[in-house]
């Protein structure tokens, strides 16, 4: 079988470029900053290739729909669990708390 990574897209047909500029949101900046800190010395929790591998392994439907930094934060969650820094259960419970705190009821 000819495996082709979902991210490996050189030469595939695509439409015109969108050249509009985008100022990163605070959420995007924080995701970027956390990713850099977790990857860099002294922590070195994972290499950028692990990051790539995790992004490529997202469900294809999720991968296609997700925004750029959405993929990053999903990969960060997976790697934090994989490296036993956080557990899935504590992330789920924190997520519930954050939502109930922030979402208008």
């Amino acid at each position: 079988m000819k495996n082709r990574l979902i991210s490996d897209i050189g030469g595939l047909p695509e439409g015109p470029l969108d050249l509009s500029e985008h100022e990163p949101t605070m959420t995007e900046r924080r995701i970027d900053a956390m990713m850099m800190l977790l990857r860099a010395k002294p922590r070195s929790f994972w290499a950028s290739d692990e990051n790539r591998r995790t992004i490529e392994s997202l469900e294809p439907e999720t991968y296609k729909k997700a925004e750029y930094y959405e993929k990053w934060v999903l990969a960060m969650k997976e790697l934090l669990i994989e490296k036993a820094i956080l557990t899935e259960a504590e992330i789920e419970s924190k997520l519930k708390e954050v939502r109930s705190r922030m979402e208008p009821s």
Binding site: T27, R29, R30, I31, D32, A33, M34, M36, L37, L38, R43, V73, L74, M76, K77, L80, I85, L86, E90, I91, K94, L95, E97, V98, R99, M102
Partner: peptide, 25 residues
């Protein structure tokens, strides 16, 4: 929401500090 949850957990557990994240930005 996931970003907020991960960040709060990492800061609470002392893996990262809020100051460091701000400095990195």
């Amino acid at each position: 929401f996931l970003e907020i949850a991960l960040r709060e957990l990492l800061v609470d557990k002392g893996v990262l500090s809020a100051r460091e994240i701000q400095d990195e930005i």
